[in-house]
Simulated scan of single mutants.
Amino acid sequence: MNRCTAPRRGFTIIELLAVVVILAVLATLAISKFGDSKRRAYIAAMKSDLHNLALIAETRFSSENSYANITPPQGSAGVILTFNGTQNGWTATATHNALPNFSCAISSGGGANAEPLCQ
């Protein structure tokens, strides 16, 4: 057999580089999707904790006719809840340790079924 006509074995450098580039692009897409799903999960936890806090506030108001002196429950993992209640109204905010400069808020205007506003 002649060296020039021998069957080729293995991959060329160009083929290997093409595979590496394709894998890098797929990994980048997967990582960005994963990061976005974590962010959505943190926001969902904040909204859920605010709904629970709104339910507590409205329940307390129905029994005591006041929103004052309500202590917010502990939030989900990483969620920090704050509550400001007066005789006739309240506001509550939620923040998450993993989302700096981002918060969700809800107030007494819509009751326990209101949708928290996040920004």
Rank of each mutant, 00 (worst) to 15 (best):
M1W: 06
M1R: 00
M1V: 12
N2A: 06
R3K: 11
T5H: 04
P7A: 02
P7S: 00
R8H: 14
G10R: 12
F11S: 09
T12A: 08
T12Q: 12
T12W: 10
T12M: 06
I13M: 15
I14Y: 15
E15N: 13
L17N: 07
A18S: 15
A18G: 15
V19Q: 02
V20K: 04
V21E: 12
V21Y: 09
V21N: 04
L23V: 14
L23N: 08
A24G: 15
V25G: 15
A27V: 03
A27N: 08
T28E: 04
L29D: 12
A30H: 07
I31Y: 00
I31M: 01
S32R: 12
S32L: 12
K33W: 03
S37V: 11
S37Y: 09
S37W: 10
R39A: 11
R39S: 10
Y42F: 03
I43D: 07
I43T: 00
I43H: 01
A44Q: 13
A45N: 08
M46K: 08
K47M: 07
K47V: 02
S48M: 05
S48W: 03
D49M: 15
N52C: 11
L53E: 14
L53T: 15
L53W: 15
A54L: 04
L55Y: 04
R60Q: 15
F61H: 07
F61D: 02
S63T: 11
E64I: 06
N65I: 10
N65D: 13
S66V: 12
S66Y: 04
A68F: 00
A68V: 06
N69M: 09
N69C: 06
P72H: 06
P73F: 14
P73I: 14
Q74R: 15
G75P: 13
G75E: 05
S76V: 14
A77F: 12
A77W: 10
A77H: 14
G78C: 09
G78D: 04
G78E: 03
I80N: 12
L81I: 14
T82E: 13
F83D: 07
F83Q: 09
F83W: 09
N84F: 04
G85L: 02
G85I: 03
T86D: 08
Q87C: 00
N88V: 05
G89T: 08
W90T: 04
W90I: 00
T91W: 01
T91Q: 03
T91D: 01
T93Y: 07
T93P: 01
A94Y: 06
A94T: 00
A94G: 09
H96C: 05
H96K: 05
H96I: 01
N97Q: 13
N97T: 08
A98M: 08
A98I: 01
A98V: 03
P100I: 03
N101Q: 09
N101K: 11
C104S: 07
C104M: 11
C104F: 05
S108H: 01
G109E: 07
G110W: 03
G110L: 04
G111Y: 04
N113P: 02
E115L: 14
E115C: 06
C118A: 04
C118V: 02
C118R: 11
C118P: 13
Q119I: 02
